[in-house]
Amino acid sequence: MRHDWLQPLALAVASAVSGYLGWSGSALALPAAIAFPALWSMARSRRTASVVSAAYFLAASRGLPQGVAAFYQSDIWPGLILWLVASSSFVFVHAAFWSRDSGGWKALRYTIAMVLMALPPFGIVGWAHPITAAGVLFPGWGWVGLAAVTAGLASMTTRYRPAAAMALVGFWLWSAAFWTAADIGRHWQGVDLNLGNSLGRDNSLARHSDLVATLRLKRRIDTTHMLLPESALGFWTPSVAHLWRQQFTGTDLNVIAGAVVVDPEGYDNVLVRVSATESEILYRERMPVPGSMWQPWLPLIGKSGGARADFFANPIVSVGGKRVAPLICYEQLIIWPVLQSMLHDPDLIVAVGNDWWTKGTSIIAIQRASTEAWARLFDKPLIMSFNT
């Protein structure tokens, strides 16, 4: 009887440790998540597989309750509820595809679970996906590296797991010994801000003037494109576009910044580009944050509002003759947006976020680590800009 509860408890604790360490905010720690499929496969019942899955996901996403409480300026309970609800998709998929069978059949079932958690609809909350470790294990390998880590994770569910684990850990140690950060795009510059929750809410002339002054102060001599965080320009209107164009008269500077485009049906979270001579909406976010931004149930109850999700739209955009893969905030935590963009072989990746609400959590560090891992996997320059 004692053995009956000790084994599930040990698996759950080990799974929680795997999630906690893997998603600690360091890119080099991401491969700790490769232990999860082995622990999942060693469960002797569907119930234990569910507990193991929940332990991993809840530990990996531990910053969510505090972040939600800060975002809504409320107590911890809404965050705890969302934390548990968000884990349900991960637990459901991994419980449904768990099997007592072993060998190739179990590996296939885990592979299907991986794919489901990478794509909509389950992939909408597909955080903490172990496949993100590919960028650390196989930097520069691209799609071959992605295939290799997929095969390695699947092998972790079979009797070959000791050999698979040794191979993956070997690649991990080799990568850690020679790790270099993703290159910064030539002539590009990301600017981090520390404006808290006022960014995007203060649309005064003074705020816009301060942002322009910040860009001028921080601009390097060789910079032609500067990146500002999500929501930096607030509501994007013809007046705001005209104001920013005026500020750069006589210069060759292009600014890419976050903004919001509002209409009677809702709004789009976007990136815009503005220079002395022109301005344009560059990119519409494919997957806004579910719940706080994307609220697909509103039309069902006869209401409008919420951010639109463009899912598979505009995976790359053209800026200055370069093919750019944009990732706004939440898109850095899930799988399909970056892989869809990589299918188009972009020249560089730009990542922005307005993360004032993550203070005291590891969320922003996880976003940075995840995006850096993808950039290293596909050997793409990476430019980032965050507000805290």
Rank of each mutant, 00 (worst) to 15 (best):
residue 96 A to F: 07
residue 48 T to E: 03
residue 202 D to N: 15
residue 376 R to V: 02
residue 143 W to K: 02
residue 229 P to Y: 08
residue 13 V to T: 06
residue 203 N to T: 04
residue 39 L to I: 14
residue 157 T to E: 08
residue 371 T to H: 06
residue 223 T to A: 15
residue 269 N to H: 04
residue 385 S to M: 04
residue 104 G to L: 14
residue 230 E to H: 05
residue 299 P to E: 10
residue 189 Q to F: 13
residue 355 D to W: 05
residue 63 G to R: 06
residue 56 Y to G: 00
residue 216 R to L: 14
residue 380 K to P: 02
residue 245 R to D: 12
residue 226 M to S: 10
residue 363 I to E: 06
residue 40 W to P: 08
residue 328 I to S: 04
residue 44 R to F: 02
residue 275 S to Q: 06
residue 332 Q to S: 15
residue 283 Y to P: 00
residue 324 V to T: 03
residue 315 P to W: 13
residue 368 R to P: 05
residue 288 P to M: 13
residue 262 V to F: 12
residue 208 H to E: 09
residue 369 A to V: 06
residue 326 P to Y: 09
residue 255 V to M: 12
residue 83 W to H: 15
residue 386 F to L: 15
residue 283 Y to S: 00
residue 89 S to D: 08
residue 246 Q to L: 15
residue 3 H to S: 13
residue 354 N to G: 03
residue 281 I to N: 01
residue 41 S to N: 07
residue 274 V to N: 00
residue 48 T to G: 00
residue 209 S to H: 03
residue 103 G to F: 07
residue 226 M to D: 07
residue 29 A to Q: 07
residue 103 G to T: 09
residue 376 R to H: 02
residue 335 I to N: 01
residue 73 Q to Y: 11
residue 154 A to S: 14
residue 10 A to G: 06
residue 87 S to C: 05
residue 265 E to H: 10
residue 273 R to H: 01
residue 370 S to E: 12
residue 361 T to I: 07
residue 169 V to T: 15
residue 38 A to M: 07
residue 23 W to A: 05
residue 163 A to V: 10
residue 128 A to T: 06
residue 64 L to A: 03
residue 220 R to E: 15
residue 270 V to K: 00
residue 104 G to H: 12
residue 295 Q to F: 06
residue 272 V to Q: 07
residue 45 S to I: 02
residue 117 M to K: 08
residue 34 I to D: 03
residue 192 D to P: 08
residue 380 K to G: 06
residue 94 H to C: 03
residue 71 F to M: 02
residue 54 A to T: 05
residue 360 G to P: 00
residue 23 W to P: 08
residue 175 S to Q: 04
residue 71 F to T: 07
residue 156 M to T: 12
